[in-house]
Each structure stands twice: as C-alpha cells, then as structure tokens.
Design a protein around this nucleic acid. Sequence first.
DNA 1: ATGGGGGCCTGCCGGC
DNA 2: TGCCGGCAGGCCCCCA
Length: 283
Amino acid sequence: MPELPEVETVRRGLAPAMEGVVIARAQVNRPDLRWPFPERMAERLTGARVLMLRRRSKYILADLSTGETLLIHLGMSGRMLVSGDPLGQFVHDHPAPEKHDHVVLEMANGARITFNDPRRFGAMDLMPTDRAEAHPLLAALGPEPLGNAFSEAYLVARLAGRRTPIKAALLDQKIVAGLGNIYVCEALYRARISPVRKAARLSAGRAARLVPVIRDVLNDAIEAGGSSLKDYRRADGELGYFQHSFDVYGREGQPCRTPGCGAPIRRIVQSGRSSFYCVKCQS
DNA sequence: ATGGGGGCCTGCCGGC
DNA sequence: TGCCGGCAGGCCCCCA
C-alpha cells in the first residue's frame, strides 16, 4: 500500500511509540530483504535512542543517538505493527508472531515494532545521519510533492523534451518523489489529463491544474490515514492499510464519477503497470 | 540520455 | 478440492 500518504501515516503512527525512546533490543530474523541488511544491524540498533522519525519520499528515516540513521522502505507489502504501547494508543497485547516478521524492535517503553513484509521488496539500511541524503537510494530523488520546490514552473521544466507518457513521468521518482501508481492515476483523473499524453505536451494550463491537484490528492489521503489512526485502538493493529475510495484506480468498467459523465473507467497497461482513467473526461 | 521491459518475491482471486 | 494464470501499492538494472 505504501505510497507517500501511507508512509507518512505509518511514520505518524510510529512516532509516539518510538521518538525519544531507546531500542532495548533488536531482533533480526533473516539476513536480508531486497538487499542484505547492513553489517551487525541488530547490534548497531540495540541501545540507540530514536531521536526523530522523518520521511523522505516513501522512505522512513529514524535518526539515532548513535549518529546513525535507520532507513526503512516498505516496498510493496511491508507493514509496521505497533503493539504493547504504554501510551495506550495502540494494541496493548503483543500478538502472536506471524510469518514474514523479519525485524522486531523492542522499545524501552514496552512498545514493540514489528516489520512484516511477505514479498520482501522492502529494505532497511544504516548510514551516518550527516550524510543521509547522500544515500544511494535518496541521492537522486526529486523534490517532495508537498514541498515548495515542486511547482508548476519546475514541473514544466522537467517534462520538457520528455517523450514518455505523463503517467510514467509522474512515477519517475527523480522528477517528483513519493507518487505511486494509485495516486498518479487519481491525480491525472482529477486534473482531467490523459495518462497517455506525452509529458512534453502538457500544456501550461494542464500543468497549472496538475500541481495543486497532486497536493490535494496526497493531503486527502494523509488525512484519511490520520482519521483511521484514531480508530487504531480497536483496529487489528495494521498501520498503512486503509479503506480508500478511489475515483478511478481499480474501477475498470465502473461508471466515471464526474457528474453527467458515467462513461466506463478504462484500464490500460503502460510500462507494465495498470492505468485507470476516463476516456471522456481526460485528455 | 531516455524509455521500455524484466526481474525480484509471496499471496490472493477467479476460472476450469 | 486443486492447479494455473494473472495480478498486486516499488524500484533497480539492463538493453536498445
């Protein structure tokens, strides 16, 4: 599930259980996820205090008192479960261990953070905090879509000369960092832009619509995640998996929700990934 | 340089 | 019930 809004929601869910808290014990159940874990990861985490949880694109960064930063990526199927939280905001009792619980952090406040990732496309790494942005996974990332650097002028400049479809361009993390397949589809629908339009042929008007729409889509999703966090106490303990109602994503054949339209949502494949859009509304 | 496709993994769902 | 193909929210890497 993890695109930017989901990662941000996970970060917010983890923060009260982790920030300012010492990692009493780190349990690492396998040598790798997508890549090998860093050398002696469990030892380097044990005893460290988590100073702050940050997010960059779809990565969670935990700055530690040791001068290192823990990088966490959820891949396609990664989840972070919080249990035993003494603040009473989360599930109180530790659940039984599950298949694919790859890393478990026992916090000094009694909280337990369990990283579960069936497909193992996720990642964890450690790096010096003062050189975090130079990490190979972060160095080439484009601007945050919710930040000031992501503007209409910036987007137009970056799309100039690009013959790739706008759909693929927005999924390119070097152009803008944090969008994934769902929110690109949703943003293009809201901005009434066809996913097959060539990036370089985005008119000024369309670009002007697109930037604020991207922000709105992401903020709406973060807000929805935040509201689901409040219900977390009676939820089953999963962070990052929310009921969303999408306008186009996953709605192939269903009627377009634009008032007066109702045309069936079409699904096409672009660079190996599904795109959903309304042929009538988006051009 | 750019763009397209393959591959990494497991789980789930629909069809036969 | 079981098997099989297709599909999945990400991203690196290779090739043309």
